[in-house]
Amino acid sequence: MDAVSISDGLIILATLLSPVIAVQVTRHLDERNEVRGRKLSIFKTLMATRSYVFSWAHVEALNRIDLEFMKSHKKEKAVVEAWKAYHDHLSHGDVTTAHWGSTRVDLMVELLHKMALVLDYDFDKTHIKNSSYAPQYHADTEGQLAAIRKGLIEVLDGQRVVPMVVTNLPNQND
């Protein structure tokens, strides 16, 4: 009879605890998916904007790396270390040299590759480096907009004058 009452007690206990356990497991899975989703958002933004490194979205995604990738996990620590190296390069050096630009690209590719490994994407470094599309029109437009902004600022600061030519003077006798 004791065996029956122990099994009945275990059934009652399991019946009472199973909803609590189910809720806890669901919360844990939801939190894990949310954390992964934030990491994926950063990675997808950086991949999508890797040819537009001055875009606001690209810069924002870079600045979110420290928040979302934990230094305690070995693979994620590699992401943070790659970001530190990339950030250091972006913050120093002569941006006008070809060497600086090629090193920047290599460091960004390294960062994206480390992120791909953490997120289980099968991208090799060559694919990351060479598979983005950026029309020349976008580069031309950005260059023109930068020139317009620079010129306008120079005019407003009094460093440049706006040339004017009068082509039609009113008749002085009228």
Score class of each variant (00 low, 15 high):
residue 2 D to V: 11
residue 2 D to P: 10
residue 6 I to F: 06
residue 7 S to N: 12
residue 8 D to K: 13
residue 8 D to I: 12
residue 9 G to D: 10
residue 10 L to K: 02
residue 11 I to E: 04
residue 13 L to T: 14
residue 15 T to W: 15
residue 15 T to P: 06
residue 17 L to V: 14
residue 17 L to H: 11
residue 19 P to Y: 02
residue 19 P to S: 03
residue 20 V to T: 11
residue 20 V to H: 05
residue 20 V to F: 10
residue 21 I to Y: 05
residue 25 V to W: 13
residue 26 T to F: 03
residue 30 D to G: 04
residue 30 D to Y: 09
residue 32 R to L: 10
residue 32 R to A: 10
residue 32 R to Q: 07
residue 33 N to G: 04
residue 33 N to Y: 06
residue 35 V to I: 15
residue 37 G to E: 09
residue 37 G to H: 10
residue 49 T to F: 14
residue 51 S to F: 14
residue 56 W to K: 13
residue 58 H to N: 14
residue 59 V to Y: 03
residue 64 R to G: 00
residue 64 R to I: 01
residue 66 D to S: 14
residue 66 D to H: 09
residue 76 E to F: 11
residue 78 A to G: 01
residue 79 V to S: 02
residue 79 V to E: 01
residue 80 V to L: 15
residue 80 V to S: 15
residue 82 A to C: 01
residue 85 A to V: 11
residue 88 D to H: 09
residue 93 G to D: 14
residue 93 G to N: 10
residue 93 G to E: 14
residue 93 G to Q: 12
residue 95 V to T: 14
residue 95 V to N: 08
residue 95 V to C: 06
residue 97 T to R: 00
residue 100 W to Y: 08
residue 104 R to M: 04
residue 105 V to N: 08
residue 105 V to Q: 08
residue 106 D to V: 01
residue 108 M to S: 06
residue 109 V to C: 00
residue 110 E to V: 08
residue 111 L to P: 03
residue 111 L to S: 00
residue 113 H to F: 01
residue 113 H to I: 00
residue 117 L to D: 01
residue 118 V to H: 04
residue 118 V to I: 09
residue 118 V to E: 01
residue 119 L to H: 07
residue 119 L to Q: 03
residue 119 L to S: 03
residue 120 D to Y: 02
residue 122 D to E: 12
residue 123 F to H: 00
residue 124 D to Q: 07
residue 125 K to W: 02
residue 125 K to E: 00
residue 127 H to W: 12
residue 129 K to M: 11
residue 129 K to T: 12
residue 130 N to Y: 11
residue 132 S to T: 12
residue 133 Y to R: 15
residue 134 A to R: 14
residue 135 P to T: 03
residue 135 P to Q: 07
residue 136 Q to N: 11
residue 137 Y to G: 05
residue 138 H to D: 08
residue 139 A to M: 05
residue 140 D to E: 05
residue 140 D to C: 03
residue 141 T to H: 10
residue 142 E to I: 13
residue 143 G to I: 06
residue 145 L to D: 00
residue 147 A to D: 15
residue 148 I to M: 00
residue 149 R to G: 13
residue 150 K to P: 05
residue 152 L to Q: 06
residue 152 L to A: 08
residue 153 I to F: 07
residue 155 V to F: 10
residue 155 V to L: 04
residue 155 V to D: 03
residue 156 L to S: 13
residue 159 Q to C: 04
residue 161 V to S: 11
residue 162 V to Y: 00
residue 166 V to I: 07
residue 169 L to D: 14
residue 174 D to M: 09
